[in-house]
Design a protein around this nucleic acid. Structure first.
Length: 408
RNA sequence: GCCUGGGUGGGGUAAUGGUUAUCCUAAGGGAUUGUGGUUCCCUCGAUCUGGGUUCGAUUCCCGGUCCAGGCCCCA
């Protein structure tokens, strides 16, 4: 027997309905902020991703050559494709551009809890705005999208200027190393690295900085930097709206193209893979041949949100109806089921050639209500509505049946 | 790429170097041709895969694979 590829999942209807519910809530929220959905190809030129993240990621991607000899890759994330789309198609659009997306991505990695080779991301990109309001808005959208899903999380916010100021005398390579230690929450290794490279004088300030939890503490360590006003303004906006967050200067997001604010959200109960959202301010458009354009965005690890939510997803109740009929009433029963569906009622009818009793038995397993159409109902033009939970039933006109079912 | 632990019907399980591999559940059918869920009966259905040891392997050994968790990585 064939099985599915490693790191992929099959999703049955119960799970899909839950995913669609959460996805719909996120989309609806993003739309209320004015973020409109875009879609990009499942595969792209390999170069799009190596420009963004370096050659090292080739090993972690699904890379292939097509019949024309092009090097292609299944998208491992969506920020680069969306920014490429902006460069290709979006130059003449009014700024700021506010886009959102929900799509599957592919990475060739070892599967773990909450980590699969095909996974889904929901994200937004705010392109062409460069302000405290822009930074704050994107974080507020992040907060609201996670909140609407029902997941319990904490948001941690940092800013690259903190670490950049502290480490400004180090060569770029060494700065990157320190950032990457911090990204792994390995502060001891970061301190050790500073000592090895003859910068032990920075070890203490580094410790102070990464344990700072207020802006005042941060600026006490690194001084009043030029970005300070904008950063204070950003947090004032968040505070004014009651957004919950933690300042954490260790949030460094190991990548070079981030330029300003960076933030990550974490959920409980997810083991090693507990980050459910990551984002920040960045500049990418110029790498893809466009104008240098400031952007802010984030991506939600949708599957991890679903794992974190577990069973606690509230689903709207929609009654399932089965039309049960006797052989001579079949055509009327089909017509009745059409009418119920036309009113948006979920309605099934026997397709197995079962007898009346067997139809009832089957309906007892899957339906909330049964609508009975037999000889009597055909004659009277009525229908019998039976509640399968309580067992009570009454014969009504079809309109009354519909009213009763849609009043739920 | 590395480490640890697992893999018995669709789901959950029992047992065993040896005769027909246990039980529960689900599914399908029937008892019951206009009234289901309870009950009873019947049916279907499994030792992940390849190799080795052995008279005989589902059991023991090795490789692979898949699953769970961790490391690396995490755009």
């Amino acid at each position: 027997m064939l099985s599915r590829p490693r790191g992929t999942r099959d999703m049955l209807p119960d799970e899909m309905e839950q995913r669609r519910e959460i996805e719909a809530r996120m989309r609806a929220k993003a739309r209320t902020w004015g973020y409109r959905e875009v879609s990009t190809p499942t595969f792209e030129e390999l170069e799009l991703f190596t420009i963004r993240s370096g050659e090292g990621i080739i090993d972690e991607m699904y890379v292939f050559e097509d019949k024309g000899g092009r090097s292609l890759a299944l998208r491992p994330e969506l920020t680069a494709p969306v920014l490429r789309t902006f460069v290709n198609e979006g130059r003449s659009l009014t700024k700021p551009i506010k886009w959102c997306y929900y799509a599957d991505c592919y990475r060739y990695e070892r599967p773990q809890k909450g980590r699969y080779r095909q996974f889904w991301q929901f994200g937004i990109e705010l392109i062409g705005a460069d302000s405290a309001m822009a930074d704050a808005e994107v974080m507020m959208v992040a907060d609201e999208l996670l909140r609407t899903s029902g997941v319990t999380f904490v948001m941690k916010i940092g800013h690259l200027s903190f670490m950049r100021t502290l480490l400004k005398d180090l060569p770029a390579e060494d700065q990157k190393k320190v950032r990457s230690f911090l990204d792994k929450r390995d502060t001891d290794a970061a301190s050790a690295f500073l000592s090895e490279t003859g910068r032990e004088n920075l070890a203490d300030p580094l410790q102070q900085l990464i344990s700072a939890r207020t802006l005042d503490e941060v600026f006490t360590v690194i001084g009043e930097i030029p970005e300070a006003d904008r950063i204070r303004e950003t947090f004032r906006i968040l505070d004014s709206q009651g957004i919950q967050y933690e300042i954490n200067p260790a949030i460094a997001r190991g990548l070079d193209y981030y330029t300003g604010v960076v933030f990550e959200c974490f959920a409980e109960g997810l083991g090693a893979e507990n980050q459910i959202l990551g984002g920040g301010a960045y500049r990418l458009a110029h790498l893809f041949g466009g104008e240098d354009t400031p952007s802010v965005g984030f991506a939600i690890g949708f599957d991890r949100v679903m794992v974190a939510l577990g069973e606690k997803i509230w689903m709207p109740f929609q009654p399932h109806v089965t039309v049960v009929f006797t052989p001579e009433a079949r055509d009327r029963a089909v017509a009745v089921s059409h009418e119920l569906r036309a009113r948006g009622i979920i309605c099934s009818i026997d397709l197995m050639g079962r007898g009346f009793s067997a139809q009832m038995k089957n309906a007892g397993k899957s339906a909330d209500y049964v609508v009975i159409i037999g000889e009597e109902e055909v004659k009277s033009g009525k229908a019998t509505l039976k509640n399968m939970k309580g067992g009570e039933q009454q014969t009504l006109s079809l309109d009354e049946v519909i009213t009763s079912l849609t009043a739920q």
